[in-house]
Design a protein around this nucleic acid. Structure first.
Lengths: 132, 132
DNA sequence: CAGCATCCAAAAGGATACTG
DNA sequence: CAGTATCCTTTTGGATGCTG
């Protein structure tokens, strides 16, 4: 009988899937936490936005990366893309029902960052002072 | 009088900071959501682990990236590194009080992925079928 | 306005070999 | 065991120019 796993996941039940590099969950994790994914998904958490609005809200993102990341997340079924056929076309993006399931934890996550960035920066300074 | 911001953040109160590429919060976001950051932090959520244990748990990570990411997160004050001076040395990593504040939302986040990966994969197939 | 295509520079990251 | 150092490939992503 073959060994089924190197590590006993029973000990930490909630960390299956994405910990396995062959599991599709790893790809989902990578898409969402890609450089711009979380910011895009969080921005859309407040409601639909147009391409140019997203571009203005997310500091430092290029049009190329915005377009590319949006396409990935639309493909994953987290974001819906709607084109109103006017001239010029109005394209808006919004979370799907699936994507909306992420809003809560992403919101919490960014909330933690907002509240603790000061402490992290302080820790960085202590570390840099120490290691010299 | 100078314009103070291009976008009115008042409309979406919770999305300040990390949305600004110049804010230190952006760097914190990038460190945590770096390719291996979330997996490492989540793994340590269940308790202290040694270098080799982390390496075994996280599929696909190289020693270089594990070492490098750990150093970044130790510097950020999210993880503590402890060396027991035996031969060979026993080095273990654990979340700091600061880092433990992240466990809850990361746990929720990975939980969402575990439960919805199947749907995402289905959406990907629909998308690929459509665009051909 | 909302993009796509191309080119190119920079960064990430893996493989391998070596060390206290 | 727990790394570090080096090399080298792959990926990322910005800039620019063009299109319906």
């Amino acid at each position: 009988m073959a060994v089924r796993s190197q590590v006993r996941h029973d000990d930490w039940p909630s960390m299956s899937d994405a910990f396995n590099s062959d599991c599709p969950a790893r790809e989902v994790l990578d898409h969402i936490t890609s450089r711009w994914g979380i910011l895009i998904l969080t921005a859309l958490g407040a409601g639909p936005l147009r391409f140019s609005e997203l571009h203005a809200m997310i500091g430092g993102i290029s049009e190329k990366m915005l377009s590319q990341t949006l396409r990935t997340l639309v493909r994953d079924g987290l974001i819906a893309r709607t084109v109103e056929p006017t001239t010029p076309p109005r394209v808006s993006y919004e979370l799907t029902a699936l994507g909306r399931g992420l809003t809560e934890s992403l919101h919490q996550f960014l909330g933690w960052i907002r509240q603790n960035t000061v402490e992290v920066v302080a820790a960085q300074r202590r570390y840099d002072r120490q290691n010299r």
